[in-house]
Simulated assay, not measured.
Amino acid sequence: MSAEPETLGLRERKKIRTRATIREHAMRLFAEQGYAETTVEQIAEAAEVSPSTLFRYFPSKERLVLTDDLDPVLLTSFVDQPADLPLLTAFRRSIESVFLRLSPEEREQEERRQRLIYSVPELRAAQMDELLRTIDLLGQAVTDRLGGDADPFEVRVFAGALAGAVLGTVRGEPPRISELLRAIEVLESGFPLVRAIEAARTSGSA
């Protein structure tokens, strides 16, 4: 998100800007030269920081691409949705809210990041580890929303099912937001088309 919280001090705002600058130059160089051909040293030089400073913000070259800055914003929005909303509805509305607040430039940056992940085999493979991390974060957000009373195993299965629904929209390229929302709506409605086909087959074999 583009706006920096006014409550942050000068040092914190400087860190945010430095981090954003490093990532901006990294994405530019990846687009111009290719991911494999771009070195950490080149990114650090372009951002006018030392490699050691770069690694304080991003511990590896992969993390420059894989780190999703929208995750914490999305999960905070999810937890803050009205308490009477079902979990899936709350998650769908949080996606809608967060992505509607993105500027055109931020939306384009996120789309470029996603395209890079899906076009580089190394990053695409590493994305599976990121998916497990996302399931952990989502599971914690679900627990927070339910007040900590939910069964941990059931919560993780729920988070995995939601992540799997999103993963199911992938067909060799990043999914559109409309597809992500549709995937959640299919979960919300309990797979009505699948159930209708099953019901028809059951009644036909009776």
Rank of each mutant, 00 (worst) to 15 (best):
R115D: 10
G190I: 04
E12I: 03
I22V: 15
S2Q: 15
D80P: 00
V157F: 14
F30H: 04
A200F: 08
I16K: 02
L132M: 10
A26V: 07
G34A: 11
Y35R: 11
G204Q: 13
R124D: 11
R13T: 01
E122L: 14
D69A: 13
R133Y: 06
L66E: 00
I22D: 02
A20L: 02
S203E: 12
A90P: 08
A141P: 02
M128Y: 01
E37L: 06
R133L: 05
F78S: 11
R63W: 03
L70M: 12
T67H: 06
A90C: 08
R101L: 11
V186K: 09
S97H: 12
V73I: 15
E111Y: 01
E6D: 10
T39R: 09
L193P: 01
H25D: 02
S178A: 15
Y118C: 06
E6N: 04
P86I: 08
R11V: 01
L102G: 03
R145F: 08
R195W: 10
A44D: 01
R171S: 10
K61A: 03
K15N: 15
D71W: 11
T67S: 07
P175I: 09
R113E: 05
L70C: 09
L102V: 00
I117E: 02
L54C: 05
L123Y: 07
V79A: 05
V73L: 07
L85M: 07
T39V: 06
Q127P: 01
L102P: 00
G147Q: 05
S52I: 03
T18K: 13
E173Y: 09
I135G: 02
I197S: 10
R182M: 10
V170G: 11
S94F: 09
T39G: 11
E111S: 08
L85A: 05
Y118P: 00
D69W: 11
P104H: 13
L137R: 13
Q81G: 09
A165G: 14
G164T: 00
E111N: 12
P82R: 07
E32R: 10
E179Y: 04
L180W: 12
K61G: 02
A150F: 05
E188A: 08
T169R: 12
R13V: 01
T202S: 15
I22A: 07
A196G: 05
L167E: 13
S203T: 03
G164E: 10
A206T: 10
D151R: 06
P175S: 13
A161N: 14
P59I: 03
D69F: 01
E185I: 00
L180S: 12
V79G: 03
L132H: 12
G168C: 13
L87M: 06
P174A: 10
L88F: 07
P5N: 12
L64M: 01
F91D: 01
